[in-house]
């Protein structure tokens, strides 16, 4: 058994590209990044301002990932990088490790939400082993980030994804929270979002007390809109491929500013 662990610890020895097992250095990355985030002091000088890099769809763009890391590392006052899903292209463990090999060089923690490509093949369990839960939330600088799996098509639109009940629970927990941000891969306007859950999703956001933004990826292009005319802003990220990301600065209850950075 020790021999088996030794063998599986080395990427060269691979029983199947679909194997879900990941070496310790590439396991539980969400928990590790959250611990790193929690260890970072929220700068007092920043007041209530929070600056994050928002991007998505790193899938198979390794050259671009390297360039993105170099660029982000030159930014000042960034707390974290949010990657809006499709970390991998084929749902394979090695792809997640390759992306981590780039993003681990970031000076700030990065946090991911699962994308539809990450769920293909054995991707669900692979993502869970490498990163962690498909739905999770965390609070940083009084901002609650709710990372929600919205890849409904991968579940045949069976009504279980996204988990609206879980989302409502997270939105209801506002202790010490000034603003709430929902991060998804597939935006609710997409044909890949369960049409029966689109309105429940929008209503959950409307009824929540402090939702500032709904962020997504999947479309491989930046957009900002208020698609439901209810005061909730939806922002879609650039993909890595486009060699652009946005710096999202948040302050006050719902104030924000966006800067596009070309790298």
């Amino acid at each position: 058994m020790a021999g088996l662990t030794l063998l599986t610890g080395c990427d060269l020895i691979e029983f199947s590209p679909n194997q879900t097992h990941s070496p310790a250095a590439y396991s539980d990355l969400t928990a590790k990044n959250l611990a790193a985030l929690a260890a970072r002091p929220v700068p007092a000088a920043a007041g209530d301002t929070l600056r994050i890099v928002f991007t998505g769809d790193s899938q198979r763009f390794y050259d671009e990932a390297e360039a993105l890391v170099r660029s982000v590392n030159q930014q000042r006052g960034i707390s974290m990088v949010l990657v809006a899903g499709d970390i991998s292209d084929f749902g394979l463990g090695r792809e997640l490790r390759w992306v981590h090999d780039k993003l681990k060089n970031l000076r700030v923690p990065y946090l991911t939400v699962v994308g539809n490509h990450d769920l293909v093949a054995n991707g669900r369990k692979t993502y869970q082993e490498v990163f962690g839960p498909l739905d999770y939330s965390f609070t940083h600088a009084r901002t609650r980030f709710i990372m929600l799996n919205t890849n409904s098509r991968e579940y045949r639109f069976d009504g279980t994804v996204p988990r609206i009940g879980w989302l409502e629970q997270q939105l209801a927990d506002t202790a010490g929270v000034r603003r709430q941000i929902v991060v998804t891969h597939v935006p609710s306007m997409s044909v890949d979002f369960d049409p029966r859950l689109e309105q429940p999703y929008v209503r959950a956001l409307e009824q929540a007390p402090r939702v500032a933004l709904s962020l997504s990826g999947h479309q491989h292009n930046f957009s900002i809109e208020e698609p439901y005319g209810n005061g909730i802003t939806f922002i879609n990220s650039y993909s890595f491929e486009q060699r652009r990301y946005v710096v999202l600065t948040l302050w006050g209850d719902k104030e924000f500013r966006l800067e596009t950075v070309v790298f």
Binding site: L12, I13, E14, F61, Y62, D63, A65, E95
Partner: peptide, 17 residues
Amino acid sequence: SWMTNKGGLPLRSILTL
């Protein structure tokens, strides 16, 4: 994955034994 990148992915990283 290797062919669609220009050096971002070293050849050794795609090998299996």
